[in-house]
């Protein structure tokens, strides 16, 4: 302790903590980056190329080397090398300068898509990760699961048809359910429809949609549609979106004469002394939370009213089937009611 000095000690302390922070901070920590780069081998590049080609072909776009290099986050020479290998292994072929998937390549790509969407479904139903993390985690996992593991995962989840964004999950034989609907900006004013899909890429737009509290499975009615904005009513609230954001929502118009009643609302909009009946729980409520709500009696047709207002704003206690049960605002927003 001869050369002790509080300032030296403090400086030493902050240098060490700073170093540890730079090394291990979430996502951008050097340790994680090194770990990630270490793992990005050829297999991952090949699989990412297949997946990109698959998505491009599905949306009817043609891809040449230049666009491919732009969308992928890898070193150019490594991509070229991977493409070479993929042509030799009969996964892709060139039609003049356009890249195309062979039958075998398409099958492989479907397998990746299957793992990705299954994993998103798993994250949504069985874990507590927030929506914004699903995509990135699935991006990592899609390269890691073997065929058997994927089958076990699928069985564990009860072989689901759709991922949490509404995208169909290919079966192991490559069968896929259809997503009905068109992009929201294509719908004329006064169309009634149901949101069947919410695109989670690019992230910036997805985050905007999440911030608006737009729920998959909601019935909507378009009230305004012009190049500057699209406005629609849904569940007692009005949503205004820029067309570029709205284009990430897929809506299936409802042909039959369905009246979108005006007194339909979210439970979070219920006022004290109002009575209502539950219509259902939004698809946004998933996994354990959804089951728990159902078990507690938040089922179609049940009478509900506010029992107690919370002094701090939330949670409010609702009287349902003779019992007072408190729910937080975000939960109440996912329960649909019809006011009486």
């Amino acid at each position: 302790m001869n050369n002790y000095n509080p300032i030296t000690a403090l400086i030493l302390f902050f240098v060490i903590t700073g170093f540890l922070f730079v090394l291990f901070r979430p996502v951008k920590g050097w340790f994680w980056i090194v770990k990630k780069n270490f793992k990005s081998n050829e297999k991952i590049i090949i699989e990412d190329i297949l997946k990109q080609l698959y998505h491009f072909e599905n949306s009817g776009n043609r891809v040449d080397m230049k666009t491919l290099v732009q969308v992928l986050d890898f070193n150019n020479s490594r991509i070229v090398e991977a493409i070479k290998k993929m042509t030799i292994n009969d996964l892709i072929y060139f039609e003049s300068d356009i890249l195309k998937l062979t039958e075998k390549g398409r099958e492989y790509a479907l397998k990746i898509v299957r793992v990705h969407r299954l994993w998103e479904r798993y994250l949504a139903d069985k874990t507590g990760f927030s929506k914004t993390e699903w995509h990135d985690r699935a991006e990592l996992m899609e390269h890691q699961l073997s065929y058997d593991e994927t089958e076990r995962l699928s069985a564990h989840l009860g072989h689901p048809k759709f991922d949490p964004h509404g995208d169909p999950i290919p079966t192991k034989t490559g069968k896929m359910a259809n997503v009905n609907g068109v992009e929201l900006p294509l719908l004329p004013v006064n169309t009634v429809g149901r949101i069947t899909h919410i695109e989670d890429e690019p992230e910036v737009i997805y985050k905007q949609i999440l911030a608006e509290n737009i729920h998959i499975g909601s019935l909507i009615r378009v009230t305004e549609n012009n190049p500057t904005r699209i406005v629609f009513l849904s569940e007692g609230e009005e949503f205004k979106l820029a067309p570029i954001v709205a284009a990430n929502l897929t809506v299936a118009p409802i042909e039959k004469e369905v009246v979108l009643e005006d007194n339909i609302a979210r439970l979070s909009n219920l006022k004290e002394h109002e009575n209502a009946k539950i219509i259902g729980i939004s698809k946004e409520s998933r996994g354990e939370s959804r089951r728990r709500l159902l078990d507690l009696g938040f089922v179609k047709g049940a009478d509900i009213s506010i029992d107690l207002k919370n002094p701090l704003g939330e949670p409010n206690a609702y009287l349902i089937k003779g019992t007072s049960i408190a729910l937080r605002k975000d939960q109440a927003a996912k329960i649909l009611i019809k006011k009486e």
């Binding site: 979430p26 069985k126 874990t127 507590g128 990760f129 927030s130 993390e133 996994g287 354990e288 939370s289 728990r292 709500l293 507690l296 029992d307 107690l308 949670p315 206690a317 019992t323 007072s324 049960i325 408190a326 729910l327 937080r328 939960q331």
Partner: peptide, 15 residues
């Protein structure tokens, strides 16, 4: 926000 963010989270409170 960190180590536990993946654990399942539900809420209900019976009075």
């Amino acid at each position: 926000k960190t180590v536990l963010k993946g654990e399942v989270s539900t809420f209900n409170l019976e009075l």
